[in-house]
Nucleic acid binder design. Sequence first.
DNA 1: AATTTTCATTTGTCTGACATTTATGATTTG
DNA 2: CAAATCATAAATGTCAGACAAATGAAAATT
Lengths: 248, 248
Amino acid sequence: MKIDPKNPANLSAQIAKSIRDSIINGDLIVDERLPSESELADQFDVSRPTVREALKRLAAQNLIRTQRGATGGAFVRRLRYQDAYAQHVTTSTLLLSMNDVTFETACEARFTLERACAPLSAKRRSAQQVATMRAEIQRQEQADLSDEHFCDSDVAFHRALVDGAKNPVLSYQLAGAVEAMQPLMNMITFSQRNREIIVGLHTRIANSIEAHNAASIDEALEELASYTLKLGRAALAARANRSKDAIA
Amino acid sequence: MKIDPKNPANLSAQIAKSIRDSIINGDLIVDERLPSESELADQFDVSRPTVREALKRLAAQNLIRTQRGATGGAFVRRLRYQDAYAQHVTTSTLLLSMNDVTFETACEARFTLERACAPLSAKRRSAQQVATMRAEIQRQEQADLSDEHFCDSDVAFHRALVDGAKNPVLSYQLAGAVEAMQPLMNMITFSQRNREIIVGLHTRIANSIEAHNAASIDEALEELASYTLKLGRAALAARANRSKDAIA
DNA sequence: AATTTTCATTTGTCTGACATTTATGATTTG
DNA sequence: CAAATCATAAATGTCAGACAAATGAAAATT
């Protein structure tokens, strides 16, 4: 745990990597205390600020937590679903916004993943889950609901669908699809969409979930996918027309 | 961009959050240069080491890159698929190792996601992709291949299957499933498995991909899933027996 | 025995300094 | 005049030492 070539470029990155590797391969286990900053500085033969920069890198990845005081220090942190979930959503959002992803690509990825969950969700659905979905549908029916809140409710609805599979690993893997891609789509299509159509499809999905009817959910999701795709194309076409007008 | 309550707890975390938010909501765009460390220290009214700790947090998330020299500084970094992919794999690996995920749960998540990709992959498969899959199968047939290399090849095979969908967003979302969960399964099942059975199923998948036969891929993947599940249960049973013997 | 005080340890932060890298512009040279 | 060289300034990377704040444990007191 004290490997550091005299390559004097990015010491804090190297130290962070060294500690991270120790966590990943199990040399450091959950809740284990790392040596104090001064001890680490001695071990790696660097100054304390450099060690601190390394520790902050690890803290940014939720790999350690720090505690002040006599028995304080840096401790290996148990990575929780909640943290990983949030991290995944942030990364997915940035990835989409920085990388010219076509609407088609994002739409396809999202619905492919969501449709994969639906059969499990149909099989294992709980009364609680159905109630959540129906409550969100009710919110979506309110005409005075802002576009932003409609989007939030839309996300909550689809998240309930995914969580209905009762598989936390699956929910985590789909976090990006539901919470990053769907707001993106909402942002693009909100001016074109008809809320009634969407609410209608959501209602069909909720009914089918309640009836444990996987095939029917898949049908509704496919319709929702093609409707979304149509909206996206219309929105892009409208935008293209506007720029043409602007030029002319 | 200079909001900081006098809550003197984790200044560097607050500063990092402030800058991160500016990136996410678009106030700072890709390749834009941040103020120098000294300027940031003035703006936030903290010292330079504190600013540096904040910047290291952002660097750990691949949100900025730094450059030394006269025209150097910290620049907003375009998050690339490759970086997000690696990050996702690391997080998934840690999440699995730290959270008592049952074999059933991981197995279900992985195959659910992979089977969702298969139809797209069957439709869009390229000669290149089929060649990659066949090459990995050939490697897997070598009797003297170590378990570790067999696992690597297994991952490469399934990654080719997923990438065959030609949807980079999908590939990214599935990174955790392929590159974190599958090695975990290999590690659990390697003592019990019969390589010939796995190679046989891989061959069926490759053939079906080449023939654009989605239904046949799904069948083979389902068999692979149930075989893997059987192996996992056997391995866990064997382990339970060993501990019972150890006690007796 | 219970409470209070003291103390040592550790993280959080600051100040100031020097080293290193790198683009720019001035200087020197062919 | 053009080209190469050198000095300079700006920025990050690193270091040393210091103090503040939090915190638990041991010591002292009631």
